[in-house]
Amino acid sequence: MRVGVLALQGDFREHIAAAEACGHQGIEIRTEAELSSIDALILPGGESTTIIHLAQTFNLFQPIRDRIRNGLAVYGSCAGMILLADRIIDGAKDQKTFGGLDITVRRNAFGRQVDSFESDIEFNGATLKAVFIRAPWVEENGEGVEVLSTAAGHPVAVRQGNILATSFHPELTADLAVHRYFFDEICKSG
């Protein structure tokens, strides 16, 4: 499978490495032409304001929105979750998102960097070490959204159809469980 990782800013190399460790081809996406050639898309961790700013400037905003709505399998971690959410609390002024995921996300919900943490959480029947960095959480989710993990009483991993999002960063650990779930459960069913 050709797995694109949006490479405008953030830890896209770690997601490429995770995709390749799962036996897929990882491709950095910076242009519309590159976007058109992929079978699945990952939105990495990073600064959501920076990524959306660059996506708008370089004409990727609408193409990515359209591909998500047309059923492209997409996974977003941390900033990626914010970019997929239909609604944001505590965003920057007029902050836009690609949307598609029927959730309200709270940005920097766990606090500033001194509150960033790692913790064992349950995901798809297994325990994994999750790294939360200035992480968002899901404040509210629509009926079609399946909650896969929670932390501090809030959803931190959710799925809706072709879309997966986590507040935490599996790409920063050696555990490939979340990436495998995305490739095996979401991409294959699409």
Partner: peptide, 12 residues
């Protein structure tokens, strides 16, 4: 967690 924060700044 500390080093990971810097990973999120990459490319910026």
């Amino acid at each position: 967690v500390k080093r990971g924060m810097a990973e999120m700044l990459k490319g910026g």
